[in-house]
């Protein structure tokens, strides 16, 4: 447990709880941003040798997940003058409880999967699955479009953690493509958020409920 990677991963997991437990929208965005910054350090610690490829990934991750995307989200938040996630579909305490259950299940589940010798004993797999589940929780239990995008961001963070297991097997091109897709995806979501605001003068996705059978 004293491995530096594990300390970082525990912080990542704690940030999941922070994002799920706070009613302040700014805090959710900042929490996700901080998680992004921590994740940017991960490749440097997991992959001991400091090659240019690993360095490039770390810098790109830091710039995108830590600065650019949270910046876009904060700008969207300021533009629509909202500060709080009022009344999510599931309350803050129940969602924290669900997050704890999810984290426990992630640890149990990853115990059943055989790990490569060099990864045995680290928290990479459980942290990845727990973060993924928290992202999914944020995505499904929040009403505000911006919160849902933050949920998507955290979900992607969880996948990024898992990607660290494979840093040798994934050529740079693919990693760059993944980051680019993440950025473009959030960018397009930002545009849609903007249109939702113009159309409905609010960012409650609850208003998006006209289409049904």
């Amino acid at each position: 447990m004293t491995h530096p990677v594990d300390i970082l991963l525990v912080l990542v997991i704690l940030l999941n709880f922070l994002v799920l437990g706070t009613p302040s929208l700014r805090m959710t965005i900042r929490g996700a941003a901080l998680q992004g910054v921590l994740l940017a350090l991960l490749p440097l610690l997991v992959h001991r040798g400091f090659g240019w490829r690993v360095g490039a990934i770390a810098v790109a991750t830091m710039a995108l997940k830590g600065l650019l995307i949270p910046g876009l989200l904060e700008k969207a938040m300021r533009d629509v003058h909202i500060r709080r996630e009022v009344e999510p579909y599931v309350g803050f305490v129940p969602s924290l409880f669900l997050c704890a259950v999810g984290t426990a299940l992630a640890i149990l589940f990853s115990g059943n999967l055989p790990l490569a010798p060099e990864h045995a004993g680290t928290l990479l797999v459980p942290a990845s699955l727990a973060t993924l589940l928290s992202g999914f929780l944020v995505l499904t239990t929040r009403k505000k479009a911006i919160s849902q995008v933050v949920g998507y961001l955290i979900l992607e963070n969880g996948i990024f953690v898992f990607g660290q297991l494979l840093i040798e097997a994934m050529p740079f091109l693919v990693e760059a493509g993944v980051l680019l897709d993440l950025f473009v995806g959030i960018f397009i979501m930002g545009i849609v958020i903007n249109h939702i605001r113009q159309e409905f003068s609010s960012l409650d996705t609850e208003l998006l409920s006209e289409l049904k059978d």
């Binding site: 849902q148 979900l155 979501m189 849609v192 159309e199 289409l211």
Partner: peptide, 18 residues
């Protein structure tokens, strides 16, 4: 560019991305 097409786009984008 209608409210209904916006709703459809948002659902498509969110569910598709997940």
């Amino acid at each position: 560019r209608t409210a209904r097409s916006l709703e459809a786009t948002w659902k498509y984008l969110m569910i598709g991305s997940v």
